[in-house]
Nucleic acid binder design. Sequence first.
RNA 1: CGGGGCAUGGCGCAGCCUGGUAGCGCAUCUGCUUUGGGAGCAGAGGGUCGCAAGUUCGAAUCUUGCUGCCCCGACCA
Length: 568
Amino acid sequence: MRYSRFGLTTLKEVPAEAEIVSHQLMLRAGLIRRLTSGIFTWMPLGLRVLRKVEAIVREEMDRAGALELVMPAVQPAELWEESGRWDEYGHLLLRIRDRHERDFCFGPTHEEVITDIARRELKSYRQLPLNWYQIQTKFRDEIRPRFGVMRAREFVMKDAYSFDLDADGLAASYQAMHDAYTRIFERLGLHFRVVDADSGEIGGSRSQEFHVLADSGEDAIAYSDDDGYASNVETAATLPVGAPPAPTAAFEKVSTPGARSIEDVCGVLGVTAEQVVKTLIVDGDDGPVALVIRGDHELNAVKAQKLDGVASPLTMADPKTVRAATGAEPGFAGPIGLDIPVYFDHAAAALSDFVCGANEADAHFRGVNFGRDLPSPAATVDIRNVVAGDPVPGGTGTVSIARGIEVGHIFQLGTKYSEAMGAKVLDPDGRERVLEMGCYGIGITRIVGAAIEQNHDENGIIWPAPIAPFDVVIVPINAHRSDAVREAADALYAELSAAGLDVLLDDRDARPGVKFADAELIGIPHRLVVSDRGLAAGELEYRHRRDSESRALKREDVLALLGSPAVT
RNA sequence: CGGGGCAUGGCGCAGCCUGGUAGCGCAUCUGCUUUGGGAGCAGAGGGUCGCAAGUUCGAAUCUUGCUGCCCCGACCA
């Protein structure tokens, strides 16, 4: 591609709308343009990257035996009513009405459509196992789209759905996708981690997420240093700890006027957050429920809403309910004397001589001890987020925390949809069996943003070679006044193109500095400079995007260095 | 959805408080000079100041409504 014909416009300044670096660089490098909130045009340069990501995903899905199809983006409401999700899915669903006043939605996912296909097409166990996939535009009406393509409303996703006769078959199909995903992210050249994930409301099923590691990631991942354990913090377990030490302090009520937060209480009483307990009042199935965790810990909503009697989704009780339940304004609740169900987190129940709210305005207790000032809880629960240094569940050592961007999710669905929608086949004994389903997603467009988050510097993007829009950029110096340079650049362009490389020839009549800056901004892995100076010596100047210095390269050695399309 | 902020040429911004016919940088076009890290000079084009009402002799500026965009939002108990 000749730069002068490519219509690329780069931006020197950072558009005000872009918060994170990948979004800024995608706009500056001309990969995307925003149409409206969470909806983007993929410009030619960006589309090249997208296509490369798609190609790798497609190759590996095909290799794993999955079959590509394309389902409709627009789906009838009836299908979603069958699965029960027309009401469940809520505002994420973009609803559309046609001229006959019939309801449709723009598909945010395709379980309903694929299950409908399956129940029509699949009649016999002999057709199984089967895995259908598509690469397609989805729409989810996110509450707050942000971070460019990382949390867009319209986005491209690869979604696959497996069908098996039984749980063993499903496990095998799931494993095949796990392995395919691992190959995909390795081939994309990204640092990633597979983590255990929340299986949501479907329950009992296996679920894992693939995260690209980046400090700006929206998810926190807990992992063990030996890589034996990795889980989304949402689901990472914390373990019970031993009984509390013996009391040493006397129980007393202290005045803490206005000290509603843990921070306030610590300030007033001169204690640290891990000596304080916070008592959160949440809505329950039969009135409010109290959750007690250590002051320095965070409540984990995913875990808490699974407790008996706790409302799901987790909802904090309103102030009126808190007053009724505790007899005090919010900010002074404590577990002593509460007449509602109380759950103690493992770590909170291991404290002695601790501080808690007194269920009375402007007062806390201190020197509180289980078995003396309140009964020891019969059982303790896991309702907090893991923190770095916690013991690894089921392993040895302690966990570390990293940030990740979720780019893939694999899931054993079981029979949720096949049951609701009647997708069955006959087994070898001639009996009807409900299909066991798995679903497997990859965020194609999100991968592009994630790759940039992980690979950039102050000058711009540094594409991993497998998804770079161009493999190499040729920068002629003073081509307008040197026929030799122009001819050499053209010849090089022809030769590298013929060798199967994606080549960008910067034939603009621009100063070298402009060309260098743009080449770095758009992140082309290899750069070759053609100049009179170099030609005289029979050399080109080569520099990798990650290098800080250029080096001379004999003209005849160029192809050997860049090799085939599989350059690194 | 709740809270906050912003809306002026393609991009980044000033002007608004204290009404008086719109400006700067970048980008774009023309010419000359320049050419190894985002050139210089001279000139040019491009804006119903988000939309709609209102106040006023006069509104980018003041008032009201609407729309769009951006940021924050269990962790307080």
